[in-house]
Nucleic acid binder design. Sequence first.
RNA 1: GGAGGGGUGGCCGAGCGGUCAAUGGCAGCAGACUGUAAAUCUGCCGACUUCGCGUCUACGAAGGUUCGAAUCCUUCCCCCUCCA
Length: 308
Amino acid sequence: MAKPDVLVVTGPTASGKSALALALAQRGGGTVINADAMQTYDAFPILTAQPSAGDRAAVPHRLYGVLPLSETLSAARWRALAETEIERCREAERLPVLCGGSGLYLRALRQGFAEIPSVAPELRRQANHDWDRLGAEAFRLRLAEHDPEIVARLKPGDRQRHVRAWEVWRGTGRSLSVWQRGKGSPSRWRFASILLVPDRAWLRERIERRFDAMLEAGVLEEVRGVLDRRPDAAWPGLKAHGAPEFFRHLRGELTLEEARRIAIDHTRQYAKRQMTWFRHQLEPDLVIEMPSNQAQEIAEKFLDKMEG
RNA sequence: GGAGGGGUGGCCGAGCGGUCAAUGGCAGCAGACUGUAAAUCUGCCGACUUCGCGUCUACGAAGGUUCGAAUCCUUCCCCCUCCA
């Protein structure tokens, strides 16, 4: 197997991706590129577990905290950003090490997907409003007049995807299902993916410990700072695990302990969803079961073999 | 001591004579996923199970009324509020 152009380190949240990516980048003269939706926003560096200043000093890190919270990231947008960064790495002859757990983003980059023009954000807002106003059933019927195919495919309760289909129809004059027939083309680069598969009990404990460390590091102040700026509830970056729970705590609806408990539970549920995705949607080149005190050695050996 | 309210499946919480193994939410388990993805959605969720509208044990405890009770009555045990 030939030397990869892009190295990917992925796995569920808190599985140890960042540390491994850092170690591999450090060893191979690489650059770590963020492949995690929430870490791309600038509002919650602590809450979203972005790399420390020390880590950033040791190795170049890209796409962490680069988008204002008021922006909306998407798989396509991230993919464009990542491509630019990978290109830069290649020019500088540095190994791009993608690190993150947003499975859809990684797939979009690697396998490509349909070219669909972006649509005005107001359409989304409007569509959501319509969903509330008309009700799910009527919204569905209306969408079915223009895109019966997508409606047949979507579960009736899936508001987000119905809204998406509607905004694409409205914004482009062509139905989403027609757009989706264009497959897009796979990336021109060779990828090598390392997947971290954690033991459940171990991960559970790590999630909890990490959360408590965040509390000690001052997440609550970080979150309060955002809340004080009265953010628009529709901003996707507000959905970082822990943010909604801390908001409720700061508004007096939950005790800190309750907020902590719920945030940890949600994080664990997310990790489960990620594992389901990786299991069925990803074909990793190397799987490392965690915990492992030799994850780095295993990964390095694997890379040496590829290069040799 | 007196007057009320309440004890329901891991938790919260509906039900208030039959169609109730018991609405709903949470948690749990499994899954889906082409542009909001740390998102969104689906299935299962007392036990057993040949997974079937099947059997068993169930709505604080013990009795009772009734063809039939989580739902009515009696006693008892807890909890909460108010008066003293």
